[in-house]
């Protein structure tokens, strides 16, 4: 039950932070999502995001920061086996499901539906 409360607070806090940046600067949503992905990858340089996920659960996996976290972990898992070349081999291992799902669903839905404006 504690995980649900933490999920709400953490995901809400990340979104609130993004909204404050959006409202007070001239950055577009594209800039903000990019910054958050880089921050997610940065936090995992020092194993911080791993600990957050342990305590928060799903709430830490839903925001885009987890995308950076999964990228760096895929790369490091391969680097563990193959050394420096492994960094280039496994980066999409963990994010593949999300990217492929987004491509496949977007493609087929765009065949079926029309743009509404």
């Amino acid at each position: 039950m504690m995980l649900y409360v933490n999920s709400f607070l953490f995901a809400g806090f990340i979104c609130l932070l993004a909204q404050i940046i959006l409202d007070n600067t001239k950055l577009t949503p594209g800039h903000v999502t990019t910054i958050f992905v880089v921050v997610g990858a940065f936090l995992d340089t020092f194993c911080i995001y791993d600990k957050i996920i342990l305590h928060v659960g799903g709430g830490a996996l839903v925001p885009i920061t987890s995308f950076g976290h999964l990228l760096i972990h895929g790369a490091l898992a391969r680097a563990h086996d193959f050394g420096i070349m492994g960094l280039l081999m496994g980066m999409f291992d963990l994010t593949a499901s999300g990217i492929i799902a987004a491509i496949v669903f977007s493609f087929f839905f765009s065949l079926i539906f029309k743009a509404k404006d």
Binding site: S7, A11, F13, D23, G59, A60, V62
Partner: peptide, 26 residues
């Protein structure tokens, strides 16, 4: 006038609900 407090609260609540939804689906 952009009501920043309102936007912030909405973003916090909806973002939090998405997080809870994620944990629920997990």
């Amino acid at each position: 006038q952009e009501d920043r407090t309102y936007h912030g609260i909405v973003a916090f609540v909806i973002g939090g609900v998405m997080g809870v939804l994620g944990q629920l689906l997990l």
